[in-house]
Design a protein around this nucleic acid. Structure first.
Lengths: 263, 263
DNA sequence: CGAGTGATTGAGAAGAGTCAAGAGCGGTGG
DNA sequence: CCACCGCTCTTGACTCTTCTCAATCACTCG
């Protein structure tokens, strides 16, 4: 990466503002960046905290950072200093093996936290790459730890967020370890749907931000297999697929595909 | 990511070099229950803490619990109250789907931490089952959090342990998502070997505590496939397998198996 | 409008799964 | 001590899912 690109990337946004899932740049400049005003707060780090404690987070989260589509928020080996709350946009995290194999380990949407892979080793173990122009709130982890010692509720919340990440990963292990291709794709779609609902979007109709190849990588399948399964689902009237646009027609049908497993 | 990193990664606690020389089960049984005296302290929760801070953990960890082979330390749905440090023995963690599928999500050996799957939801999301008669130190999590607010080093350590668990899981996702059966088994063996070394055991000769079926479940393979691959490795003089007794003959050869297929 | 990605589809190959038989090991009880 | 049982492991033959390779189509962007 060039220094210029690096500088652009780490340039903080000076005038913090309120979070609305799809506000334009002009609006951003106008509103303050405070968790207490952010409409993602119920999904994000402050979730479950009371007004007072949220105010303590406000002190922490004063920087934002934009990441253009295709650029990375951080890369393997980068020094770890902060975790990030996605404000808008969409990310994938992935590792690249020396032989070139690239494994997507997760997708991240607004209100979700990125970067916890770096805490243990003090450098990042994953790449986080924007799948569309995105914006994140930068949460300096050392300061978060400091404030956590003063605000037990916040400490607890940090632990919960990390624990959920562990449980989530183990869900993916289950998916990769014991499900057939059809089931994997069904789980993937249903999971996306759920996450969109939680953000106030339609549960049944959405745009995939990632390519078939990225989906395949995440699910441990080849892109052709993903494509074939989308086609098969379409034939069976479970979903309507048009390139990246997905409409889920039969949630029950998709769920039935996977024995019983509900996430 | 390097192959070495991957092998390391699926190890729960990346230990800091200080290998412990030949601790046997008998020695462990003799020492009083204090982290500061424990042979495993360099691998376990206190790893990296100074004498003073370790003393604070001593106050926390006053209970131990024995778990007989085949019994569970905790089960899905149990109320979460503590995390556990394995003192002796061997555990697997697994989830069981309604349709009977059973996915092993990890194996846990002395010095490693179990139970962090429960923090987020306040109940456990996994089953932890002893593969041999085992003993764990019980660490009440609420008290750990309290003490953490007073001892920044400890808070940091808790975060590191959790983060490593996240990174470990992502290593397993990589394994399940993009490796062929042979590679998976090779990584599995090399990883076990590393973890035994860190505990002062032979890197090349050890007993598998788990069945072929459990290995298969963990690696996303059927038990027959695991068995066949062991046989193939034996034919190629990479390892000597006799039921559960494993001798690794050619570490380099096993490592070479990984990364032969480009994507 | 054309170039370049990304997506779909087909045919054939390969890897892993399934089913089944039998061997090895360890414990139990006659 | 031996025979038997139950469990785990090994091996073979066959099946089937998923991958690979390749051709073609669909969109997007300049």
């Amino acid at each position: 990466m060039t220094t210029a690109a690096l500088i652009r990337q780490i340039t903080p946004i000076r005038n913090p503002t309120t979070a609305l899932a799809n506000i334009g740049a002009r609006d951003i400049a106008r509103c303050p960046t405070h968790c207490s005003n952010c409409n993602l707060r119920e999904l994000c780090l402050p979730c479950g905290l009371t007004g007072n404690d949220v105010a303590r987070i406000d002190e922490l989260v004063y920087t934002r950072r934009r990441v253009k589509r295709g650029e990375s928020l951080y890369r393997v080996g980068d020094k770890f200093s902060s975790i990030y709350a996605v404000r808008s946009g969409f990310f994938k995290s992935c590792v690249i093996l020396e032989d070139g194999r690239d494994q997507v380990t997760g997708f991240c949407m607004p209100g979700e936290i990125l970067g916890m892979d770096g805490i243990g080793t003090e450098e990042h173990n994953l790449n986080a790459i924007a799948l569309e122009d995105s914006e994140v709130c930068v949460i300096p982890f050392a300061r978060l730890e400091e404030v956590s010692t003063l605000v037990p509720g916040l400490q607890r919340q940090v632990h919960k967020v990390m624990s959920r990440e562990i449980v989530r990963d183990q869900g993916v292990m289950m998916l990769l370890g014991s499900m057939r291709a059809e089931e994997r794709v069904a789980v993937f779609l249903l999971n996306l749907s759920q996450r969109f609902v939680a953000r106030g979007y339609s549960p049944s109709e959405f745009h995939l931000r990632m390519t078939r190849e990225e989906i395949g990588s995440y699910l441990g399948l080849k892109l052709e297999t993903v494509s074939r399964i989308f086609s098969r689902f379409q034939e069976e009237d479970l979903v309507a697929v048009q390139q990246k646009h997905i409409r889920i027609l039969d949630v029950a049908g998709l769920k039935k595909l996977m024995g019983q497993k509900l996430n």
